[in-house]
Amino acid sequence: MRTLPTAVSPVVAGTAIGWWQGRAPLHVVALCLVIALGLVIGVNFANDYSDGVRGTDDHRVGPQRLVGSGAADPTTVRNAAFGCFGVSGVAGLVAVAVTGHWWLLIVGVACVLAAWFYTGGRHPYGYLGLGEVFVFIFFGLVATAGTVYLLDGRVSAAGWAAAVAMGLIADGVLVTNNLRDIASDTAAGKRTLETRLGEPATRMLYAGLVAAVTVCGVLVAALSTWWALLCLLGVTLLVGAARIILGGARGMRLVATLRLTSMGELVFSAGLLAGTAIWAALG
Rank of each mutant, 00 (worst) to 15 (best):
S9H: 03
P10G: 06
P10A: 05
V11A: 02
A13H: 04
T15C: 02
G18I: 02
G22F: 03
R23V: 02
H27V: 11
A30I: 04
C32L: 11
V34I: 15
I35S: 12
A36H: 14
L39V: 15
G42Y: 10
N44A: 06
N47E: 09
G52I: 06
V53K: 09
V53Q: 10
T56E: 14
D58K: 13
V61Q: 04
G62Y: 04
L66W: 14
V67T: 08
V67L: 10
S69T: 00
A72L: 13
D73W: 14
T76E: 15
A80E: 03
A81C: 07
A81Y: 11
F85K: 11
V87K: 12
A91H: 03
A95F: 00
A95I: 01
A95H: 03
V96M: 01
G100M: 00
W102K: 00
L105K: 06
G108I: 03
A110M: 11
C111D: 07
C111T: 10
A114T: 15
Y118S: 05
H123I: 15
Y127W: 02
V133K: 09
V135H: 00
F139V: 12
G140D: 04
G140V: 04
L141N: 11
T144C: 14
A145M: 03
G153Q: 02
R154W: 08
S156Y: 01
G159Q: 02
V164N: 08
G167K: 05
V173Y: 13
V175D: 10
N177Q: 07
N178S: 02
S184T: 14
T186R: 13
A187I: 05
G189C: 09
K190C: 01
K190S: 08
R191S: 07
R191L: 04
T192H: 00
L193T: 01
E199Q: 14
E199I: 04
M204S: 14
G208N: 06
V218F: 15
V218I: 14
V220L: 11
A221P: 09
A221E: 10
A222N: 07
A222P: 09
T225E: 12
L237F: 11
L238A: 01
G240E: 12
I245A: 12
G247V: 04
G248I: 02
A249F: 14
R250L: 13
G251F: 06
L254E: 12
A256F: 02
M263A: 14
M263Y: 11
A270D: 08
G271S: 03
T276L: 01
A277Q: 07
G283R: 15
